[in-house]
Amino acid sequence: MPIHEKSLLTPDQIMTADKLVIDGVDVSGHWNTMIKPRTITDYDPDFYKKIEGLPGGENVSRCWQCGSCTNSCTMYAINPDFNPRYWIYCTNLGLQSEIVKDKDIIWQCVSCNKCTNICPKDVKPEGVMKALAHWLELEGHTPKSKSSVFDEEFTRQCLARGRIEDSEVMFNFFKKTDQDVVRLVKTGWLGVFIARMNKWTELRAGRWGKFLARMPITGPLKMAWAMVFKPRTKSWGRTGEVLAAYVEEQKRKAHAAH
């Protein structure tokens, strides 16, 4: 018998065994492929609150499934699996596993905001896409974005010392995101950046004085000193701890605000 609506099957639902014996009957070979039931057996009634609590997701429960967002979507035109309407529905009913299935495409939203402009219920689907991507990252379903890594390093230094050290932020950011600093200097944008800070044209023209006058010397020295001694803002004391606790509390409140 043909399988109806084959398109609804995803690879993870299909089970195949080389050898299969059911109730003592060997069904290896032709009958060795089974499909897991697709039945939804429960909702998570509070899941939508998590998305509502993240920036952009505030209006998610307003959706009535007209599909305007998906129809107007830039990404949907390229990839029919990119379906904001569907993810919003899954959010409201609490079908988390459906959302996790699409973790590798939800972040692709290009924020063109056509959906935001067309939505008759002011759901702000573009914001919901951001909130969903954020949630997927918070839950560890998707790797941390580079900007999150940068923010974390930046915040860590702020809280620890009441100040940041540019070079240390960059150094740790490159390290945590597996970017090779030497290669970036030799062949990447960092080399170009350094070159432009220096006046090579002056040097080539033999104007040593002008070249040296423009060459950053004290700056890098200060940076190197700071990287070694890690100075703190004067009388910083326990400010960092208090701030960290306050930020945590505010985050918790914001996530539970709805």
Partner: peptide
């Protein structure tokens, strides 16, 4: 059948 998810449902 939830026709928007296109899946059967059995919900308590």
């Amino acid at each position: 059948e939830d026709t928007l998810v296109k899946r059967p449902i059995v919900i308590p």
